[in-house]
């Protein structure tokens, strides 16, 4: 190191400076070592989680029978029935519903912030969106419990804790993710596209919706994928409003249990095969998240973000 440094400077060091340089060098390598260690901890954590999940989840899954476990529709640990189909479907339904609520609202908000809002408006909206992102999920859950659930009970009957409540609440929770990622994708669209459209006689709205938005489509799709990740991984808020029946729901007003809430609700007292079945549930969730991340990185590369 010391040699390279003096080479670069092209200066011959006296003995005093040489000492100085080696000290500096030592400090630099120490810092580099620290950073490398920090990076290793991060990677190690991921590897450990993977190893733990697979080591503890796979044997249980095999003992139950992989097929029975994944496609079984009855979850009754007391009767040794461990079918997680209701929870897989529950997670998918809740996520799909959240997307129906959150994606249109989020994309339109991002469009508004990127191309329509005045600077004064933005000053107010940007912090609002980041605040929404920072609200803890248990607070969201509480909001759902005291506002959305009673509202659904009033409007549609039933007890309110339902698939619908979970969809609406999760839809709100994924808004900040969709808004911020979509907005930066929209802001990254070259101004020349917009100007080109205007020069052809297009109005502002047409230029934005027909040229700018399509140009940002990979980034917007990436925001949706991130939103899916957020929705499928959410446990606390969903658990507070979804009713949590381990049954495949046949209506929007029925209760639903997701993969995450299944784990959270029963992990506290589960033992033996029941415990292993819950860890196996986490493996399934992990596979979902992994594929979503993969999809996201593919889209991200294509969007050039």
């Amino acid at each position: 190191m010391a040699e390279r440094r003096s080479d670069r400077g092209g200066i011959a060091f006296g003995p005093a400076e040489g000492k100085n340089v080696s000290l500096k060098c030592f400090r630099e390598s120490l810092a580099a070592g620290l950073f490398a260690a920090a990076a290793c901890i991060c990677v190690l954590a991921v590897v450990l989680i993977c190893a733990f999940l697979l080591a503890n989840g796979i044997p249980g899954m095999v003992r139950i029978g992989v097929f029975d476990f994944l496609t079984g529709t009855r979850w009754k640990p007391s009767n040794n029935l461990y079918g997680i189909m209701p929870m897989i479907l529950g997670s998918l339904y809740v996520t799909a519903g959240a997307l129906l609520v959150g994606v249109p609202a989020g994309i339109l908000t991002a469009l508004f912030m990127s191309r329509f809002a005045s600077r004064r408006m933005l000053k107010f909206m940007k912090p609002a969106v980041s605040l929404l992102a920072g609200i803890p999920s248990v607070v969201f859950g509480f909001f759902g419990l005291v506002v959305i659930v009673p509202l659904i009970r009033e409007l549609f009957g039933g007890n309110g804790s339902s698939l619908l409540a979970a969809c609406v609440l999760l839809g709100m929770m994924i808004l900040p993710t969709i808004i911020t990622v979509s907005e930066s994708a929209l802001n990254a669209v070259p101004q020349s596209y917009y100007e080109g459209a205007l020069a052809l006689g297009a109005t502002h709205e047409r230029a934005v919706f027909r040229v700018v938005l399509p140009a940002a489509k990979s980034g917007v799709a990436a925001s949706v994928i991130l939103g899916i990740g957020r929705a499928i991984g959410e446990a606390m808020a969903v658990m507070m409003v979804a009713g949590n029946w381990p049954v495949i729901p046949d209506s929007l007003l029925k209760g639903v249990r997701t993969l995450t809430s299944n784990i959270v609700m029963e992990m506290g007292y589960a033992a033996d095969l029941h415990r292993e079945a819950l860890i196996a549930t986490a493996v399934v969730l992990f596979v979902f998240i992994l594929s979503i991340n993969l999809l996201f990185s593919i889209l991200k590369r294509r969007a050039g973000l």
């Binding site: 020349s192 100007e195 080109g196 020069a199 006689g201 040229v211 399509p214």
Partner: peptide, 20 residues
């Protein structure tokens, strides 16, 4: 302005075809 720009077209310094 929409009508004006229809009558008066423009070609920019840097080619700017839309990504379609």
């Amino acid at each position: 302005t929409s009508l004006l720009r229809r009558r008066v077209g423009m070609v920019f310094q840097k080619p700017n075809p839309f990504p379609m």
